[in-house]
Design a binder for these strands. Structure first.
Lengths: 328, 328
DNA sequence: CTGAAAGCGCTTACAG
DNA sequence: CTGAAAGCGCTTACAG
């Protein structure tokens, strides 16, 4: 690894001149520039990012905090972020919380210490402590998936999507509709989607039975078990709306095991348009969210904040699209 | 953001002493330590990682280069890496090549410039230029998925897995077996898996017809199209081995669309044990690879190299397990 | 157009 | 046990 000092000596100029040539700032004579470029070419010199960061306070790195990295949703969002950042020469420093809220806070500190130029958080909750911390951060922050007070966010219209999907089930003649949801501290997925379901049911004056509503966690097995609990009730719904595709996949797998026909005996719908939902039998009726786009939007917001632009949206709400397949 | 100088002044000691207290290196009197800790507590001071890195040449960051981030395989591997690194306070700096080989080389430089303590590359090819570059790198490198000369690697036994799977198809009475593979410049997936297939066929003295072997790219649609091409032949195989699960999923989707029964009319098998393979109808017979473990191993190798340990394995070959389901 | 000098925020021999 | 000083590799006014 060469340093700017060595390059300067080899090119017979000062470090200042090399620096100016490197950054195209200030004047550098053609001759000097030529010699410098030759030396750089020959040595393969690249300036140290750390030294640069120390001086300029810029790192061209964006911290990204996700609950998990191996799920389809996170994967798509991170891909979207990366795609947009790469265009501008930025990179991602990754932090995975494994859904541990304490880690979420810790990583926020750690990323700040590493002087990232911005932080994108894939939000899983709206705990007060998080909101406060986020608001005190000195680097730009964008949250994806949750609306947090005072924080720039990119969100899905969870309530709208859930309402529309539930209304679709109703339009197909279902009146007894069950619900598999998640913990409401995840406001977007847990609370808003449930609200959408409840609103649609109320709007159509349909009964909502608490036995038909089960809470699960974010995995396929949990959807399986929730479906089982719903069917243990004496009379069961003719359709079930699961808050996520993975939950719906679990529900379907239980139904098939228990020899229910889908959708004849029980219809199932989810949200997320995961790949697995496309290939499961029967293909799942779901709502398509634009995760990659969410990541791109978030990256753009961070970038414009980092460059001091005022063109920042307080909140971006993404479009969704009902994807009707054979499970309903 | 406070600096060490400010902390030193507030605690009435020198920067040196603060630094020693921070790093538990050298002597610091109890009194001094107490005052320093109080100040740190009060101010929430955290030392700048950049300044530190500039001095120590350590960053506690590992660069990870992947072809894509949103696929299940990459996701699991990165999760495994992250899991192991997090234990030791390291973080991942992510670089996605989108299968662009030029970017692979560029990112290698970029990560080195960013002074990462090590680089993990999820290998997709064995081009000479890459091997050479890797060998000249001054930071520790581990490659996952491909065996490269002179480079520490964590690999699957691709040939063995393919042989075993093909032999299983044969044991089920199949003699006309087709193959859907990928470009052989991906030596592990393209070449080794094909070799395993060919060896098993030869070993059982079964004919291999070139019309039954199709090349695809890494996605579901491509598997779909390859299956279609295979069936355009006058007489077709009774089983098809696809080099990856996603290819197999595509093949199945074509077969279903064309009203073939699986496995009665045609059996299908893949490699990878992807989640989608579990839930597709019929569930796919496949080979289970341990992607998360691969990531963990790679991280451990990088960490021990970075800490100058000599306990480094030149090559780790992971175990696999045949996962027999209903598609054969 | 160019270079000397200061400074970014740390750590680490070294001298005391 | 402690502090002054040098140095890591850059950039950026400033003076010429």
């Amino acid at each position: 690894m060469h340093t700017i000092k060595e390059i300067a000596e080899m090119a017979n100029v000062s470090r200042s001149t090399v620096s100016r040539a490197l950054n195209n700032s200030g004047y550098v004579s053609e001759e000097a520039r030529k010699r410098i470029n030759q030396v750089i070419e020959k040595t393969g010199y690249v300036p140290s990012e750390h030294a640069k960061s120390l001086r300029t306070k810029k790192t061209k790195v964006i911290g990204v905090i996700v609950p998990t990295i191996h799920t389809e949703t996170s994967g798509k969002i991170v891909a979207g972020i990366d795609h947009e950042l790469a265009k501008h020469g930025y990179q991602i420093l990754l932090a995975t919380t494994n859904l541990n809220r304490k880690k979420e806070l810790e990583y926020l500190d750690l990323l700040q210490v590493r002087q990232v130029d911005g932080i994108i958080l894939l939000g899983t909750n709206t705990q007060q402590q998080l909101v406060e911390k986020l608001n005190t951060l000195s680097v730009p922050v964008v949250v994806i998936g949750q609306e947090l007070e005072g924080i720039i966010s990119v969100v899905n219209d969870d309530e709208g999507a859930a309402m529309e999907l539930t209304s679709y089930l109703i339009s197909q003649g279902h009146t007894r509709i069950g619900f598999i949801g998640v913990d409401e501290t995840d406001r977007a997925v847990g609370y808003m989607r449930k609200q959408g379901y409840l609103k649609a049911m109320n709007h159509h004056r349909l009964p909502v039975k608490s036995e038909w509503m089960q809470e699960a966690v974010f995995d396929i097995d949990s959807g399986h078990d929730a479906m089982q609990r719903i069917l243990q009730q004496p009379n069961h719904p003719s359709a079930v709306f699961a808050a996520t595709d993975r939950l719906a996949v679990g529900a379907i797998s239980f139904l098939k095991r228990a020899d229910f026909r889908i959708p004849t005996d029980i219809a199932v719908a989810g949200i997320g348009a995961s790949e697995i939902a496309t290939y499961i039998d029967p293909p799942l009726t779901t709502v398509e969210y634009q995760y990659e786009l969410a990541g791109e939007h978030a990256a753009r917001q961070i970038l414009s904040q980092a460059s001091g632009s005022t063109e920042v949206h307080e909140k971006i709400v993404l479009d969704y699209r009902l994807s009707i397949r054979d499970s309903v």
